[in-house]
Amino acid sequence: MASPRLLAALLVPLAAGCATRDLSESWILDRLRVLAVRPEPAEPRPGDTLALSALVVGPGQDLQAVLWLACQDDALGVQGCELDPKVLASLEGLETATPEEIAALYASLVEAGLIGVEPWIPPTYTVPPDILDGLDPAARLEGLNLWIQVTAIPEDASSDADLELAFKRVPVSEAQTPNHNPNISGLQVDGIEVPPGAVLELDRGQPYSFVPVLEKGSVESYRYLNQDGVWEDRTEEPWFLWYVEEGDLTTPWSLWPHPVQEWTPPATPSFDHQTLWVVVADRRGGMGWWTQPVHIR
């Protein structure tokens, strides 16, 4: 019966206001989170080497490590890239392993897709040169995705439930106009641009409007060969995600060309020095972010 199903779908947002308890909001950063992953370059060609970075935030939590994996579709599971079970089994005796055994284990992990362990091994990945082999010329322009798995491990992790898992696609192609990461160069607060490195002074309980300032060229125009074989000129339409530690946001996201956001700092903040984060994504795989320290008066 279609109508009750449709009704149920429509009721979900309505019903959220009728919940028996308040649930945490995605834009309040009160736990360890992976907010963004940025490959450089954003759209590599076969054989290129990627440098990867992530915006991992955990207010009040110490980070033990960030584990990076890379894989292609054939190793993709429900939670992103999956390690070979044999490799996982070999980790059981890690405490008593000899240096040679640890070296061999690390080699097997690299073979299985490990590309970095921060803060010790910065994540890098060289795209297989033959990754696009077998695709026709038009498909090579469109490319295919690599998968990057990020696992943030807090200092006090005691079970898998304490880990924060995230995955990201990285398009690999021979596009004529390959994508570049967008960059946020600053913020405008109530129409005034905040100087780089400045700490924002905001009044508690007062609403402020924020507009992210993108570096020139962040909103790219590019060419795309559509399914009819016709080249189209397109322009990116990035979206922005906003995160704070306390206070109220009107919505968790804003869209180009209306990137404005309103944040009301808490009337009674738990601590005076807080942070606001903005993440930008260009919908083609490119990402960037801005971290803004705030002093709430």
């Binding site: 919940a19 028996t20 945490s24 909001e25 995605s26």
Partner: peptide, 23 residues
């Protein structure tokens, strides 16, 4: 009564709550 009709979760499925039935 509360009369839960279904369960809703927060954004990362680490918290849940009941959605009340008709008031």
């Amino acid at each position: 009564g509360v009369n839960p009709e279904f369960v809703i979760y927060n954004y990362d499925y680490t918290e849940s709550a009941y959605v009340r039935g008709l008031p």
